[in-house]
Design a protein around this nucleic acid. Structure first.
Lengths: 340, 340
DNA sequence: CTGTTAGCGCTTTCAC
DNA sequence: GTGAAAGCGCTAACAG
């Protein structure tokens, strides 16, 4: 593996000159530039990114963190798409992505802080935001460059999010229009911003249509199929009536499907179901699942675009920015009671 | 951000002494060790990983590469699980994971070589292996530490794989035992090792049961639901008969489901379907999908374990090793013709 | 046990 | 336009 010195020697110039042509420095004679480039080619020279990072004190890599317990969602294709989007624009800007998966928020915090303190990454992307998120607080405090996928309610931060409340609103409206009126809301943990946003959309639609907002029909549970099933079963046992469920995640919707199957309730006639994320396979269930489609790829793309922009323009760093991406309700059989 | 010199100054020792206590060097007096540790704590010191990497010439990060066009599979939860497994053991050994997603094999090769040449990673993990894989050839040639998820047919390399041929064999046997005899084999690209291995398992079972191996019933197509559908539709148009489909991927099996639905063929009565990967939701389809369960998490865990082991034991580097993980056929309704 | 001295490979003033 | 020299923060002989 040849170094910059080797190249310099072969080209008959000093290392600094080589460094300059690598950096694309303007004021360097065409002649020497050519000689240096020839030498680099000849030696098959590739600059050592680590040495470079040390000298320039940045790494051109960004950390992506997700904590699993919360994001059961990780097991769904949503994240793969996000990663693709991230990777694609990272590559355009010649950045790398370091992955950090944690089992819980505490571990996540430690790992993130460590990545930053060890200077392994220039900035971070957070995949989940909580209501009073300690990680966000810590990163803000320390002036770490980061952007959150989702949004922060407490602090002004860079973020890119989907229009969750609007989506929740439309999904609920759709159910109401289909003639459902006892709509249950099934959601993941209450402390996730995304849960609350979708919930707020739901509430908005309900009250707009003068439907009662019975807190008994609202349940925050674990983000799994089982969690969804159990929650609905419990409602049933408590004698709470509902003719539709808006699930804040497809996994939960799956639980609703199981619930319906188990108790021989027919979907969509006696139970309408709408999910979130539009997980690919859901299209092929019988009945097919109505779900809110998220632009996962774009979410990933935007989030790194924003971060890199922030990293490379230290000047306008104070301009906090929130990008909101549209989503789309994909109406399928699980909620189509009226034949049009 | 404080450096090792700052710590040295505060502790009243030389930088090398500090370096030694960081490294956990044995021969250092308890007294100075304590003083240094106190100083580190006081200054909130965290060693700069980049400087460290430069000095020691390794980074403690490993690159994971996947090329998307081939691995449509990426959009399924399989990879999320693999990532979790990888992440988990990487963390145990204090390694980081750099993600590299490419659109095609050519790009993948370039990115991998670059990561290595730039010395950003100590080693690589490949997620897909082809029959005559140029990437594997290049990495072997250059003596790059790497392990493949899957296996290499040409070159002796470190790898961890599932027992694909055994799995293909059992899945086929199962279909035969259920009374199907015209079993079609539906697979992804022919140049993937995984496709051929599963195919070989299929062939083995067919010949063992003296069933004709009609090449018309074997089709290699794109690894998508649509690919599966189209392939079967074409068979039908060509008048090729089949009463079961062994799909080398759940996505393909999904295509088979669609095919059955579209032509009103009843599953499993008139068409048995078996998939590969046991994608979580498949359990909830109607009928539920029989599928080969892969130990994705373990696959990820083993693969980085092997790589790290290799990286840290340069002595026994020549001992090429192939780890094979068991898989399990999860029998569900899509292939259960006989009621037991 | 601990300090001194060279680097690791590249960038970046500061001269000329 | 180009080179010399210092330095990024840490490690690793080599002494003592």
């Amino acid at each position: 593996m040849s170094t910059i010195k080797d190249v310099a020697k072969v080209a008959g110039v000093s290392p600094s000159t080589v460094s300059r042509v690598i950096a694309g420095n303007r004021r360097i004679s065409k002649k020497t530039r050519l000689r240096v480039q020839r030498a680099m080619a000849e030696l098959n020279y590739v600059p050592n990114a680590i040495a470079r990072s040390l000298a320039r004190s940045h790494t051109r890599t960004i950390g992506f963190t997700i904590s699993r317990a919360v994001d059961q969602a990780f097991s769904n294709p949503f994240f793969s798409e996000v990663l693709r989007g991230m990777s694609s624009v990272a590559q355009m800007h010649d950045y790398n992505i370091l992955l950090s998966i944690s089992m819980d928020p505490k571990e996540e915090m430690e790992k993130c802080l460590r990545l930053i303190q060890e200077r392994r990454v220039d900035g971070l992307i957070l995949s989940t935001s909580r209501l009073h998120d300690p990680l966000i607080a810590a990163l803000s405090e320390d002036d770490v460059p980061f952007v959150v996928m989702g949004r922060s309610v407490d602090l002004p931060v860079l973020s890119v999010n989907n229009d969750n409340v609007k989506a929740g609103y439309h999904a609920t409206m759709h159910l109401i229009e289909q003639g459902y009126c006892n709509i249950a809301f099934l959601s993941g943990p209450k402390d996730l911003v995304v849960s609350m946003d979708r919930f707020n959309g739901y509430k908005q639609a309900m009250s707009e249509k003068d439907l009662p907002l019975d807190s008994q029909r609202v349940v925050f549970t674990e983000l799994t199929e089982q969690g969804g099933f159990d929650a609905l079963e419990q409602l049933k046992e408590q004698g709470v009536l509902f003719d539709a469920v808006l699930a804040a995640d497809d996994l939960l919707a799956l639980g609703a499907f199981q619930f319906a199957k188990h108790f021989s309730i027919s979907v969509p006639e006696d139970l309408g179901i709408v999910g979130f994320n539009d997980t690919p396979v859901m299209e092929y269930m019988t009945p097919s699942l109505t779900s809110v489609r998220i632009l996962s790829y774009d979410l990933g793309a935007e989030v790194v675009d924003l971060l890199i922009n922030h990293l490379e323009n230290p000047d306008k760093r104070r301009a906090k920015k929130e990008i909101v991406l549209p989503s789309e309700l994909i109406i399928r059989d699980s909620s189509r009671r009226k034949k049009d």
